[in-house]
Design a protein around this nucleic acid. Structure first.
Lengths: 374, 374
DNA sequence: GTGAAAGCGCTAACAG
DNA sequence: CTGTTAGCGCTTTCAC
């Protein structure tokens, strides 16, 4: 049976090795970072100024490439700074300039494939531009509110934020603007901040149409809570596309065919079980993410069913593993969304006029073995 | 054929919508964040002090819960601060205190499953303790050096770092110490900093032994560059375990059976191809990560082979999808490693004596369908 | 082209 | 218990 196991547990389980407590004076395994770390005195801008025989103002200007410094001076300062391996203390310059040269990426969960792609994409741009990227997980409404409210975090810690699939209410948006925080969203479009994403209605339509064209008429949907009032907008749009395609084909919506999979593999598994237990189960299922589709495949496998023989399955993302399991999917380039958003945000922070209201990424249907005709 | 596709390209591809340039005065789509954002004047500690009729010192003390403040005073300050929604400017307090209340997590790549689990685990602890987590991708030696050298980043931006599978030389270690940067490693153990990981030699042995016990004698290994001089230590250890088990069974090592998969799915795929093209291919393969194992499965599938019929495959991680594809694997709880490391680091930053030199996580063999007897 | 000095907003002695 | 004050290290007018 799948997942049944021989639990050859490691003999090394939970091995806390070498408990050291140096509060009573530094004995213990190799001084595990408890001794007062020396931290050789760092050079300050004054040290550099003195060594270069100029004022701190000149050092500051020279090192940051500001105009109004004679070429020879600039060079001298640079080399002195270099050899003292001087670097401006970020905290000090943040305080003086009021900008932190860092951004936050807020995601609803961190271990999803889609989100890690986004984070990877954004990180690449941050590395390129010298920005720090802090990532924060916002699980649920409360976390989102406390993050946005003056009540919490971001405030002055970052210059801007990328909200990834975080449902922003009108209220949130105005709070954000009032706070003067540059914002870019991924997924949802706010009409106030630039955003990047895909045409999710089109995605839902494309997926469903594909299934329809194969002859299916009873098509299940694995998505998000349909009842979620203030929920993510992406699932809703994909659902709209689904309904739209069905409508065009003259097929009535069946609420029982639409279940939530919480955008996780286990959620998809449970959702598929629900679908399979229906008196009149679907012959094809559109899962709004590949991970949920994987879950659906597992559910089928557990009952001795397989795709597309018993039910066709179609996902969204083109996860790294979709090819392995032969999953038909609507591909999007998630890491691109992340880097795009970061570029948009940072370019804005650098004072460039924002140029894009919405960037819609590429989308295409990749037909593999998990879908077939009836 | 797998991966062959119907490219129904979206008609919405690359749609740059609404190009706005307000450098010539605010017309354009709904003011896309180009206008001088107001950013209502933030309250400073002085404002609060004035409003509460106390000194800034008292405000500071009261708000941070320091001793030596009368209860009524503390309360009054708190409520005034609350209703002015005052929050200490992090840049200022960082400068004054010399601590940033943030840590960095450095990973060699961001889109691997293992690493996103780690990041997720660490983030949870940071959220809990009020630390910011900045994540940085260190691809290759140069990036690592420039990160560690005074020459670059971290310096004063974070109080501590978690290095995830970043090979640290003795030199790196002393630089880090000299710099006074609290450090925790995941994977490699340095004997200077606390570390978390698993017993990787044991992992290699466990996996190989399992294959041996099934009767296999020709066992391939998909890992990392064996020749990498300064490479990650984890692959080397797992390889040691592999050699160890083989040795116990009296089987000689065959270099041709050991190939690099770069710890990615495509790398695993290529590695498996190499293995399959051998004159005398293995009957079982131990891949050092599930993702590489997935790649191996794809390679087999592409040639009309399947596991375990033609070759048994075994991975490491227990990836979310391993159950789906029925992959036998050595499970580790990656997110745990991340949270553990974060806890270790932060507790140290909070001044607690470090208590653990090395935390070894749980490991167990999960036997599924991808392995069978000869 | 360069320097002097006034902050940025907070923390931490040191007095009272 | 509370207030005064001197920094933290950098940026940025404003003079020279």
């Amino acid at each position: 049976m799948p997942g049944n196991v021989a639990h050859l547990t490691s003999p090394h389980v939970n091995a806390y090795i070498a408990v050291v407590n140096t509060s009573e004076g530094g004995l213990g395994v190799g001084g595990l970072g408890t001794e007062p770390i020396p931290g050789r005195a760092r050079a300050t801008i004054e040290d550099v100024a003195a060594a270069a025989g100029v004022s701190v103002a000149t050092v500051s200007r020279a090192l940051r490439g500001l105009p109004g410094v004679a070429a020879p001076t600039r060079e001298r300062v640079a080399s002195v700074a270099e050899q003292m391996s001087y670097r401006a203390d970020p905290a000090a310059s943040r305080l003086a300039m009021g900008r932190s040269r860092s951004i936050a990426v807020a995601v609803p969960l961190l271990n999803g494939w889609y989100f890690s792609q986004i984070v990877a994409g954004a990180e690449a741009i941050c590395a390129l531009t010298g920005y720090d990227m802090i990532v924060v997980g916002l699980y649920g409404d409360a976390a989102r509110r406390s993050f946005i409210d003056a009540g919490d975090s971001i405030h002055r810690r970052v210059d801007g934020v990328i909200f990834v699939e975080i449902p922003l209410t009108e209220n949130d948006v105005s709070d954000l603007m009032a706070r003067g925080l540059r914002t870019v969203t991924i997924g949802q479009a706010t009409h106030r901040f630039p955003s990047v994403g895909i045409d999710d209605t089109y995605v839902g339509d494309l997926a469903t149409s594909h299934l329809l064209s194969l002859g299916h008429t009873r098509i299940g949907l694995i998505g998000d809570q349909p009842a979620n009032p203030d929920g993510r907008v992406v699932p809703a749009l994909r659902q709209t596309g689904y309904a739209q395609a069905l409508g065009r084909a003259g097929i009535a919506l069946d609420p029982k065919l639409q279940v939530s999979g919480s955008f996780t593999m286990v959620g998809g598994l449970a959702a598929m079980e629900t679908l399979l237990e229906l008196a009149d189960p679907p012959t094809a299922v559109f899962a709004m993410s590949d991970e949920m589709a994987f879950g659906a495949l597992v559910a089928m496998k557990q009952r001795g069913l397989s795709a597309p023989k018993d039910v066709s399955i179609l996902g969204v993302d083109d996860h790294d593993l979709s090819e392995l399991v032969g999953l038909t999917t609507v591909r999007q380039i998630a890491s691109d969304h992340g880097s795009r958003a970061a570029r948009l945000l940072i370019s804005q922070l650098e004072g460039n006029a924002s140029t894009v209201a919405r960037y819609d990424g590429v989308v295409e249907l990749i037909s593999r073995e998990s879908t077939a005709g009836t």
